[in-house]
Structure formats: structure tokens, C-alpha cells
Design a protein around this nucleic acid. Structure first.
Lengths: 144, 144
DNA sequence: CTTGTTGCAACCTTCGTTGTTACGACTGCG
DNA sequence: CGCAGTCGTAACAACGAAGGTTGCAACAAG
């Protein structure tokens, strides 16, 4: 699977902004976050734009502009972030419709749909158990 | 996420072979399965090759050749299939190493690693609860 | 020997993600 | 008002994964 680092980078950005604000700063720039994540500022702006649409962060423009949290880290879960940055389902159906004249071709999609829905529900439940506050705590707890 | 249909197609193929064998046939050909799944026989052979390496199916060559189940559908779970056809992890870390001089850049990977491991474990547990027998039963239960 | 099927390599197309450049929009400050 | 710093966003290239396609060697039943 073309595994996806979007959730990782988004969590990185949120933890960074949260920590930076706790150090007394008003806003963080995409440039600073990009340096920490070792990527391009535009990538960060794109991701944070999706988080803004989800109401997790706010942005200011003009001189001294940048990004700030719209809510406390403790009230944000990885599920909020996941839903903001990951559009599609975890598993896909066939790219082309299977043979509807075949018993298996006809019934396989509803059958797998049921399984996949249950799994995604479980995944959401797991993601909802972890707040960004938890993530930041674990980040700071890393041994040096 | 570039969602993946490999698990779906693999389950389709296994259910098809299982049903076909119950109808009294010895082996199924990749051609027949490809017709049902509306794809190319080579795609099916590639997938079934991975399932063979995992010990789920067997293949015979020569005239009258084809694929057969190596075990009962009831003893195969979606986890077996998942592990056979999906190599990588669900979520990826940064593609480039984050800034190790930054507190967040340093601690983010271990923090997310811990979260992701827990989630993958839960996913495996869910997949292990569904046997291919369950899948075939649901396939046949689809209303016409 | 012929025939039908797998095994496998090679290549192309498509698609999603990431990286990069460019430029307009906005705003605080002098 | 003009400048400078930053966001907002479009456009495009680079890259990799997955799927589709073709071709052919290997194999085995008859």
C-alpha cells in the first residue's frame, strides 16, 4: 500500500505549533514547521489548510502572520486529524465492476463492504482515543 | 489515501475457487477468476502467487491445470490474506528524517510509532475475526 | 507432438503524494 | 503610501505503487 505520511506530518505540525505557543509565541510560520519536518513550506500550508477547514487551526496573513491552534491540544484527537487529511476509505473495491452475472461477482462487494465498514469503525475508535496532547506528551518523553 | 483493492480481489478469488470446488470442480483457472473479477488473468495469477507463497492455495501446471485451495475456507482469515498481499504498514513516517535538533522533530517518530503499532494490532485482530467461510456465506446471502 | 495453463519478465498507463516554483492577496509598520 | 513578510493557491515535475497488457518459456495430460 502506498502508505501515507499525511497523518504523521499533520500531527507533527500540530504538536509543533502547540509547543511553540506554550513557549509564549503567538503564531508559527509554515517555514518554521517545514524546517522541523524537513519538508517544503507549501506542503505544510496545504496540510494546515485542510486542518483549518476542519476547525483545528487558524491562520493570519500579512506581516507577522502564521498559524495558531483553534482549540486546545487536549480537545483534538487523531481522528479529527485523520478525517481532515485522509479523504478515502482504507480499502477499495474493484476498480471495475465485477461480473454481475456471477454469484461471487454479484455478492462480493456487499460482503466486503460490511467487513470494511466494521474495520473502519474500529479504526476510528482507536484514533479517537489519542489526543494531540497525548502525542505531544509522548514526543517530549522521548529519551535523548 | 491510495486505497488498495488487493485484499478485495484476493478475497474474491478465494471465494470463487472455494465455491467452484464445492460445485465439484477440481481446479479453477486464472482466466475464469479474472472474468468474474473483471480484470486481467495475469493480475489474478500475481495475486494468487502471493497467496500460494503464504500456503493458502496451490497451483497445478500443464493441461487441465489451475488453482485449488490448500486449506478449508473456514480456516483462512482475512488476516492471512492481508499479510500475504499487503507488504507495508498502514501509516508511514516522514519520507525524510525530521530535524533531530528540534524537540518535536526528534520525538515525533517514536511517539507516532507507538500509536501506529497499537492501531495495526487492532486492525489485525479485526481481520482475524473474519474467515473466508464467513465471506463466502455473506456473498451467497446477497439479495438478488 | 499438441494443447492449455501457469510462471514470470518487461513495459506502459494511471493515479496519488510530495516537492518546487511562481505569483497574487493580505496586513502591519514605517 | 509603499515595503516586507507570510499566507493561498495554481501549475508542473518527480516519484512510486498498482493495474493492465503482451510475450514467451516451462510444464504436463492426452
Amino acid at each position: 500500500m502506498s502508505a501515507n505520511s499525511r497523518l504523521t506530518i499533520a500531527a507533527h505540525a500540530l504538536a509543533w505549533i502547540g509547543l511553540y505557543q506554550r513557549q509564549g509565541h503567538e503564531v508559527a510560520t509554515s517555514e518554521q514547521i517545514a524546517t522541523s519536518a524537513n519538508t517544503n513550506p507549501v506542503v505544510i500550508r496545504r496540510l494546515l489548510g485542510e486542518l483549518r477547514r476542519a476547525g483545528l487551526v487558524e491562520s493570519r496573513r500579512g506581516v507577522g502572520a502564521g498559524w495558531s491552534l483553534a482549540r486546545e491540544l487536549g480537545s483534538m484527537t487523531l481522528l479529527d486529524v485523520y478525517e481532515a487529511v485522509e479523504p478515502g476509505p482504507l480499502f477499495a473495491m474493484h476498480r471495475t465492476t465485477p461480473d454481475q452475472g456471477c454469484v461471487v461477482g454479484y455478492g462480493i462487494q456487499p460482503a466486503m463492504q460490511g467487513v470494511y465498514e466494521g474495520i473502519e469503525e474500529t479504526l476510528r475508535h482507536e484514533l479517537a482515543r489519542v489526543t494531540l496532547e497525548n502525542v505531544l506528551r509522548d514526543v517530549l518523553a522521548a529519551p535523548r
